[in-house]
Amino acid sequence: MTPPSNDDLGFSHRTRKNGDVELLHHGKLAGTLRGAAAQDFLAEVHDGSPADAQQLMARLTGNYKHGNERTAAGHPRNRR
């Protein structure tokens, strides 16, 4: 498993014996990469910083902010 970093978003990963990569979010399985996708992921994580790895895992699992959270807060149905 990957060690936590200063820019920790709660993601980690582990490689299985068969080459699959499991992406974990706060210790729970968030996604699995197989084949070429797993190898590409491992190469990118190896070459990048821990913060970049966190962002990559967030994008791959779909668990990231989309940029519209601030505008959505001002929508009439969300104001209370």
Score class of each variant (00 low, 15 high):
1 M>P: 09
2 T>G: 09
2 T>L: 13
4 P>V: 02
4 P>M: 05
4 P>I: 04
5 S>H: 00
6 N>L: 13
6 N>V: 14
6 N>E: 12
7 D>R: 13
8 D>M: 05
8 D>I: 01
8 D>S: 12
9 L>K: 08
9 L>I: 07
9 L>F: 08
11 F>K: 03
12 S>R: 11
12 S>H: 10
13 H>E: 09
14 R>S: 10
15 T>L: 11
16 R>M: 11
16 R>W: 02
16 R>V: 10
16 R>C: 11
16 R>P: 06
18 N>Y: 04
19 G>A: 11
19 G>V: 05
20 D>E: 13
21 V>T: 11
21 V>G: 05
21 V>H: 10
23 L>I: 09
24 L>R: 03
24 L>P: 07
26 H>E: 12
26 H>D: 14
27 G>A: 05
27 G>K: 10
27 G>C: 07
28 K>I: 10
28 K>W: 06
29 L>A: 10
30 A>W: 07
30 A>E: 10
30 A>V: 04
31 G>M: 00
31 G>C: 08
32 T>W: 05
33 L>W: 03
33 L>K: 00
33 L>C: 04
33 L>Q: 00
35 G>K: 11
35 G>R: 02
35 G>T: 05
37 A>R: 11
37 A>F: 08
37 A>W: 02
38 A>M: 06
38 A>L: 01
38 A>V: 03
38 A>G: 03
39 Q>C: 00
39 Q>W: 06
40 D>I: 01
41 F>A: 05
42 L>E: 09
42 L>V: 01
43 A>C: 08
43 A>Y: 01
44 E>V: 10
44 E>G: 05
45 V>P: 05
45 V>M: 07
45 V>E: 00
46 H>T: 14
47 D>F: 12
47 D>H: 12
47 D>W: 14
47 D>E: 14
47 D>L: 15
48 G>A: 15
48 G>F: 03
48 G>M: 09
48 G>C: 14
48 G>V: 04
50 P>H: 10
50 P>G: 09
50 P>R: 01
51 A>D: 11
51 A>N: 09
51 A>I: 01
51 A>V: 05
52 D>I: 08
52 D>V: 10
53 A>V: 02
54 Q>L: 03
55 Q>D: 13
55 Q>N: 12
56 L>C: 03
56 L>G: 08
56 L>K: 05
56 L>M: 14
57 M>S: 09
57 M>L: 04
58 A>W: 00
58 A>R: 00
59 R>P: 07
60 L>P: 11
61 T>R: 06
62 G>L: 00
62 G>S: 02
62 G>D: 04
64 Y>S: 00
65 K>S: 13
65 K>F: 07
65 K>Q: 13
66 H>P: 02
67 G>A: 08
67 G>M: 07
67 G>F: 00
69 E>D: 02
69 E>L: 01
69 E>T: 09
69 E>A: 07
70 R>A: 14
71 T>C: 12
71 T>R: 15
72 A>R: 15
72 A>P: 07
74 G>H: 15
74 G>N: 15
74 G>Q: 15
74 G>R: 12
77 R>T: 15
78 N>P: 04
78 N>M: 14
79 R>A: 12
80 R>S: 15
80 R>H: 14
